[in-house]
């Protein structure tokens, strides 16, 4: 049977969870991958593993995109908003295309409060 990258990722997570010798387990895991001729899937497995591990910890990826690099006051405000919702792992990026406002990506939900989107909507209404 074909084993999907997701299944490999769960497997890797479980064998490395409570072990003192992580290195050996990872080596064994790579051995299995080689035996199954699945070494080509390693990138996908790592991506799935990362996501799965985060989910198990109850952590959530949060990306904050703003037009200009966020100042300290804004940061504090956003952190304050997020501190009740689990363990956010915050990443900030600046994208001048946004023009103004803020866009947040939490897991697979995007909250778009950017000026770019508002202007686009305005254009739609006026056309």
């Amino acid at each position: 049977m074909k084993i999907t990258p997701f299944q490999y990722a769960i497997f890797l997570y479980q064998i490395t969870l409570k072990t003192p010798d992580v290195k050996k387990k990872v080596n064994d895991f790579l051995g299995i991958l080689a035996k199954n001729n699945d070494l080509g899937k390693i990138n996908e497995i790592m991506r799935e593993f990362e996501a799965y591990e985060k989910k198990q910890r109850g952590a959530e990826d949060v990306e904050i995109i703003s037009a200009r690099p966020a100042g300290p006051a804004l940061k504090r405000q956003v952190f304050g908003l997020l501190k009740d919702g689990g363990k956010p792992e915050i990443k900030e990026t600046a994208d001048p295309d946004l023009i103004g406002g803020l866009t947040m990506i939490i897991g697979d939900t995007m909250i778009d409060g950017s000026l770019r989107r508002k202007l686009r909507e305005l254009k739609k209404v006026l056309s």
């Binding site: 939900t109 995007m110 778009d112 409060g113 508002k118 209404v125």
Partner: peptide, 11 residues
């Protein structure tokens, strides 16, 4: 009818 708000989307 133009009410700019915040849009939420599944991505």
């Amino acid at each position: 009818d133009y009410r700019p708000g915040v849009e939420t989307a599944n991505i």
